[in-house]
Design a protein around this nucleic acid. Structure first.
Length: 656
RNA sequence: GCGCGCUUAGCUCAGGGGUAGAGCGGCUGCUUUACACGCAGUUGGUCGGAGGUUCAAAUCCUUCAGCGCGCACCA
C-alpha cells in the first residue's frame, strides 16, 4: 500500500468511491428483504433546477439517515426523483423564449409547439440536479428514479382527480380567486405572499341622492376600481350613517357615464369597521374577496373593470381603459381631483398579496375554476395532534394544526400548459369526468392541475400505486421525511391527507424540518442577490464531505442557518484531520485486520479512549433519536480531534 | 391584530436551576519526525432590559424592547 499523501485530496477519492458504491448496487433497495425497512422519499427538486445550499442541507440529512439505517442492518429505500414544477418551469421557458426573441407571448407558439419546447428544455436541463446530487454523495436508489410527468405517475394523478370528483370533493365554481396577471392563471392561497406596500389612502366624496348637501367620504387604496363599485357599505349600527342605509349615492367614475348607471345603493354590513378610515367602504365585488362576500350578501351586481392581463377594460371608462392597473391608480386619483371630489391623499402602508413566481401584485378576480374540498382532513389533523406522527422541531405542530383547522377549498386548476391536463371532457352542454376521451366530438378541459396536486401523491405514486406492489408493502409508510418548513402547507399537509385517503395510512412517521439558509447578513439566499454560492464550486474547493460536515455542524434544529464559507473550510479541515490520523497509523507499520481486539495489550490510555468511545456511542444514539444533527457532528468532531488525535495519538507517540 | 421563534465572547452558535462552553477570529510562540487544512499557549461574556419564584436563575414565571417568520377579508 502506497503511503498516503500528507493532505487529503477529495477529488482523488470521491468520484471513484461513489462509482464503486453505485456500480456494486449498494443503494438498491430489495423489497423482498427480511430486514426491517427504512424508507425516505426525496422531496423532488424542480426538474430544471440546479442544486442550492438548501438542497445540500436537506439531502445530506437524508443521506445521514439512510446510511445510518444501513449500518444498523435495515433494508433502506431512498427514493429519488424530480418534479415537473408547472408554473415555475413554464415561466422559465417562456422567459427564455421571449429573451431569444422567438415569442412575445406563449399564444404566439400555440399549446402543442410550446409544450414541445418545454420538453426540449426538460431534456436539456432535466438531468443536471440529479448529477449534482450524485456529486454530493447522495445514496439514493437511482434505479427507482421518478418524475411527476412519467406516464404511470400522470395516470395516478388523473385517477385521483376522477375519484375525488366522483366523491363530490372536486367541483367547478365561479368564484373569487387569486389571479396572476403576468402568468395569467389562477393561484392557490398558498402561492400568494403578503408583502408590505407603501402607497396612499385617497379620501373622496360622494353625494347622497335625495339628501341635500349630504356627502359621504370614502377612504380607498384602489381608486382605479371605483368604476367597478356597485355599492357603498357602512356599519348598520354606525350612528353617523345608519339612517342612510337604503338610499343611493353617485359613483364618481367613470364621469362620462349617465347618472342612472352610476347610481349605487348604500348598504349596511357588519364587515365594515367603524373606526377605520371614515367608516365608509366602497364595494367592488368583482375585484376584492371581502367585497365579493358583501356583494353576495346584498345581491349586488359585479362589474369587471380589470382584464386578465391586469389592464383596465372599457367598463373602466375612456380615461382608464387600456391602462395598466398600477398606472390607472394615479390616473383615477387625478380624475377625482379634476372632478373636485378628492378630499385628501395620505401616505399609507398596507399588506398586498404578491404572486410567488412572477412577483407582482395578485389581482383578485372572478373566474370559473376547479376546487377541491380536502379529503381525510380530520384524521390528518388528529394524527399530529395526538403525536402519532411527529414533527421535529415540535413547534411546527401548532402551525400545522392551525392551518388544518381553517382549511379553505383548494383552487387546483391552472390556466397553464405545462402540467397534468384536467380529465374533464365537454361536448355541447355535456360534461364528463374520466381519464380517457369519451369519443368523437368531445374536447378536453384546457386547464392543467396545480403542481402540488401531483406531488401530494409522491410517497405512494412513486412506489407503483394503485397496484399493490411489493415496494408499497415493504416500504410504505415511509419512515422519515426531511423538508423545509416553507412547504408545510403546500406539500406536507397535503401528502398526509392524500396518504390517509388513498393508502388508509399516514405517509411517513416523522417529519424533520430543516432551517432556512441565510447569508452572513441574515438575508435569504437568492440568485438575484448574488449571495447564493454554487455548491459545486464549494465541493471542488473543499470536497463533498467538507461541505456536508461544515454545513451540518452549523445547522441546529429548527433555527435558520447563517451560512459562512469559513465553516465549510472547517469541514474540510476535519476531513483532513481524519485522513492524517490514518496516515499516522499507516506509518506505524502493517495492521492486522483479523486481530482480536480483546486480546490486544491495553494501556491506561487505550482504556480511557475506549471508555470515551463508549460514552460517545450512547450520546450519539440519543442524538440520532432526536434528530440533533449539528450536535452529532459536533460530538464526532470533538471526539476525533481532542480525544483521539490530541490525546491518544500524542500519548502514543510519547510512549513510542 | 393573533401566534411562533430568536437575543449567551469580536463572529457563528451549544447549554436550559448549582464554578459560563465550542469553533472561528485576535494575540504569543512553534520548518516538534500524521496533519500550517497543523501544534502549544493566551485573550475575551454583569448570558437583551426590568421585575418575580428559589438557599441558588443564562436556565423557571411575568413584563418590556429589538430582530425574524407564519397566519389574518381594516378598505
Amino acid at each position: 500500500m502506497p503511503e498516503l499523501a500528507p493532505a487529503y485530496d477529495p477529488s482523488k477519492v470521491e468520484d471513484r468511491l461513489y462509482r464503486q458504491w453505485t456500480e456494486r448496487g449498494d443503494y438498491q433497495a430489495n423489497p423482498a428483504s427480511a430486514q426491517p425497512a427504512f424508507s425516505i422519499v426525496i422531496p423532488p427538486p424542480n426538474v430544471t433546477g440546479i442544486l442550492t445550499l438548501g438542497h445540500v442541507l436537506n439531502n445530506t440529512i437524508q443521506d445521514i439517515l439512510a446510511r445510518r439505517a444501513r449500518l444498523l442492518g435495515q433494508e433502506v429505500l431512498w427514493l429519488p426523483g424530480t418534479d415537473h414544477a408547472g408554473i415555475a418551469t413554464q415561466t422559465v421557458v417562456e422567459r427564455a423564449l421571449k429573451k431569444e426573441g422567438k415569442i412575445k407571448h406563449r399564444d404566439d407558439l400555440g399549446r402543442e409547439e410550446f409544450l414541445k419546447q418545454v420538453w426540449q428544455w426538460k431534456e436539456k436541463h432535466g438531468g443536471i440536479i440529479i448529477q449534482q446530487l450524485k456529486k454530493l454523495g447522495a445514496s439514493c436508489d437511482w434505479s427507482r428514479e421518478r418524475f411527476t410527468m412519467d406516464p404511470a405517475y400522470s395516470a395516478c394523478v388523473q385517477q385521483v382527480f376522477v375519484d375525488l370528483h366522483k366523491k363530490g370533493l372536486i367541483y367547478r365554481g365561479r368564484r373569487m380567486v387569486n389571479w396572476c396577471p403576468v402568468s395569467r392563471t389562477a393561484l392557490s392561497d398558498e402561492e400568494v405572499i403578503m408583502k408590505e406596500q407603501r402607497g396612499h389612502l385617497w379620501h373622496f366624496r360622494v353625494a347622497v341622492q335625495g339628501e341635500k348637501d349630504r356627502f359621504l367620504t370614502i377612504a380607498t387604496t384602489r381608486p382605479e376600481t371605483i368604476p367597478g363599485d356597485t355599492a357603498i357599505a357602512v356599519h348598520p349600527k354606525d350612528p353617523r350613517y345608519a339612517s342612510l342605509i337604503g338610499k343611493f349615492a353617485l359613483r364618481p367614475l367613470p364621469p362620462e357615464q349617465p347618472e342612472s348607471l352610476r347610481r349605487i345603493p348604500i348598504v349596511g354590513d357588519e364587515h365594515v369597521e367603524m373606526e377605520f378610515g371614515t367608516g365608509v367602504l366602497k364595494v367592488t365585488p368583482a375585484h376584492d374577496p371581502a367585497d365579493f362576500a358583501i356583494g353576495q350578501r346584498h345581491q349586488l351586481p359585479a362589474i369587471e373593470v380589470i382584464d386578465e392581463s391586469g389592464h383596465m377594460n372599457a367598463a373602466a371608462g375612456e380615461k382608464l381603459a387600456g391602462l395598466d392597473r398600477i398606472k390607472a391608480r394615479a390616473t383615477a386619483a387625478e380624475q377625482l381631483q379634476e372632478l373636485g371630489c378628492l378630499e385628501k391623499e395620505e401616505a399609507y402602508t398596507n399588506q398586498v398579496g404578491y404572486s410567488e413566481r412572477a412577483d407582482v401584485p395578485v389581482e383578485p378576480r372572478l373566474s370559473e375554476q376547479w376546487f377541491l374540498k380536502y379529503p381525510s382532513a380530520e384524521k390528518s389533523r388528529e394524527v399530529i395532534a395526538s403525536g402519532k406522527m411527529r414533527f421535529f422541531p415540535d413547534r411546527w405542530t401548532k402551525v400545522y394544526d392551525h392551518w388544518m383547522g381553517n382549511l379553505q377549498d383548494w383552487c387546483i386548476s391552472r390556466q397553464l400548459w405545462w402540467g397534468h391536463r384536467i380529465p374533464v371532457w365537454y361536448r355541447a352542454k355535456e360534461i364528463r369526468c374520466q381519464v380517457d376521451s369519451p369519443g368523437e366530438g368531445w374536447t378536453q378541459d384546457p386547464d392543467v392541475l396545480d403542481t402540488w396536486f401531483s406531488s401530494w401523491l409522491w410517497p405512494f405514486a412513486t412506489m407503483g400505486w394503485p397496484a399493490k406492489t411489493p415496494e408499497l408493502k415493504k416500504f410504505y409508510p415511509t419512515t422519515d421525511l426531511v423538508t423545509g418548513p416553507d412547504i408545510i402547507f403546500f406539500w406536507v399537509a397535503r401528502m398526509i391527507m392524500a396518504g390517509f385517503e388513498y393508502m388508509g395510512e399516514l405517509p411517513f412517521r416523522n417529519v424533520y424540518f430543516t432551517g432556512l439558509i441565510r447569508d452572513a447578513k441574515g438575508r435569504k439566499l437568492s440568485k438575484s442577490l448574488g449571495n447564493s454560492p454554487d455548491p459545486l464550486d464549494l465541493i471542488s474547493k473543499y470536497g463533498a464531505d467538507g461541505l456536508r460536515f461544515g454545513l451540518l455542524r452549523i445547522a441546529p434544529q429548527g433555527v435558520d442557518i447563517r451560512y459562512d464559507e469559513k465553516q465549510i473550510e472547517e469541514g474540510r479541515n476535519f476531513a483532513n484531520k481524519l485522513w492524517n490520523a490514518c496516515r499516522f497509523r499507516q506509518q506505524q507499520g502493517p495492521c492486522d485486520s483479523q486481530a482480536d481486539p480483546t486480546k490486544h495489550p491495553r494501556t491506561p490510555f487505550s482504556d480511557h479512549l475506549l471508555a470515551e468511545l463508549d460514552a460517545l456511542e450512547k450520546e450519539l444514539e440519543k442524538m440520532y433519536a432526536n434528530y440533533e444533527f449539528s450536535q452529532i457532528a459536533q460530538a464526532l468532531y470533538g471526539f476525533v480531534w481532542d480525544e483521539f488525535c490530541a490525546r491518544f495519538i500524542e500519548t502514543a507517540k510519547a510512549s513510542g
